[in-house]
Design a protein around this nucleic acid. Structure first.
Lengths: 191, 191
DNA sequence: ACCTGAACACCGTTCAAGT
DNA sequence: ACCTGAACACCGTTCAAGT
């Protein structure tokens, strides 16, 4: 009674990841269970452990897979405000493509090896702004925090409530404008 | 075989909440279980359900309890940048007092009835900045998102990594400065 | 009114046994 | 090499029975 007993083909890691992603986007990360996943694949729950160390390791794999699809703005001569805007939009688009998983990554940043590309884009553009070296790591982290903070607040519904204003895309633009304005002002203050 | 069988006194809601808070700060919200909580109180797990509807309702109670301790800056004549700074620091202090619970609230904003006081402080000060009515809801949400975003990123450790810079308090100040600078610039652009 | 034990429907994961 | 069933140690919660 081998694989062919329950299913035609052998189980693959890719197959597992795809099914897991489907389950996650339906029921959230906390709605994913190894047993449900196995049922989805018509397989014994324990078979999964031949392809994946454990549940958190599976999640890590999936997170890295989707994080790799982030489209970073290239290092052409584009003015820094446009590059920062582009990065913010790309990040938000990625979040909207898989909200549950994105929220999981936000709370477990250690699942990603290091978001090198992201920091590079920030640094390159902060240099263009004219932020002094000493301040750059701080500003870089502030930008990161602002960006993830907005998206996270949006995804969990924290921005739905205080009023009837529902144009969240507009709010995002205003938020970006605010940051850019702040950077411009810091820039103007530099010698 | 009543209460006196296992414990001297009757079980109270307050007692349950305190024990739950202790467990949460030791092992995180996901480390809290009704069964462990009961063990901590030396009580049958099912006894808890006489004082609390279920686990999520218990969490809601605890969240509301601690959220009530946020110290909002009063509506005296203090200049708006100072008031916003004070609010940011109060919010961060609350988060640091109970990181796990704070992160839980951040991902489940519906556990709090409505953060009225918070929005009032924002609005009052944005009026002082001179932000036009039409933009105010957007800017208000942006400020909220930035503030929670920073604290959340800090708590989960997302700001530890990119470099050796560890003075996170300084980073927080820089982030606030950046926002204030942005608001000042918007303010200057108003007629 | 408050507490309890047994039970149900779930988890993740280990381990020995199968092909 | 890959799959499986039984088992272990956990969950939250219901329900009928106890005082």
């Amino acid at each position: 009674m081998a694989a062919s007993a329950r299913r035609g083909q052998a189980l693959t890691l890719e197959e597992i990841c795809i099914a897991a992603l489907r389950l996650i986007e339906v029921g959230g990360v906390e709605g994913l269970s190894m047993r449900k996943l196995a049922a989805e694949l018509d397989v014994n729950p324990m078979s999964l452990y031949h392809h994946v160390e454990n549940k958190t390791e599976l999640l890590k794999q999936i997170c890295r897979l989707t994080a790799g699809t982030l489209e970073l703005p290239p290092d052409d001569g584009t003015p820094w405000p446009d590059q920062l805007r582009a990065l913010a939009h790309a990040y938000r688009a990625l979040a909207h493509a898989g909200p549950s998983l994105w929220l999981y990554v936000e709370q477990h940043p250690d699942v990603l090896p290091e978001e090198d590309g992201l920091w590079e884009v920030f640094d390159r553009n902060l240099a263009a702004v004219g932020i002094p070296d000493e301040q750059r790591p701080h500003v870089r982290k502030a930008l990161y925090a602002f960006c993830t903070g907005f998206i996270s607040a949006e995804l969990v519904g924290a921005l739905d409530r205080p009023d009837g204003v529902t144009d969240i895309d507009r709010t995002f633009e205003v938020a970006i404008d605010l940051i850019i304005a702040g950077l411009e002002r810091l820039s103007a203050q530099q010698p």
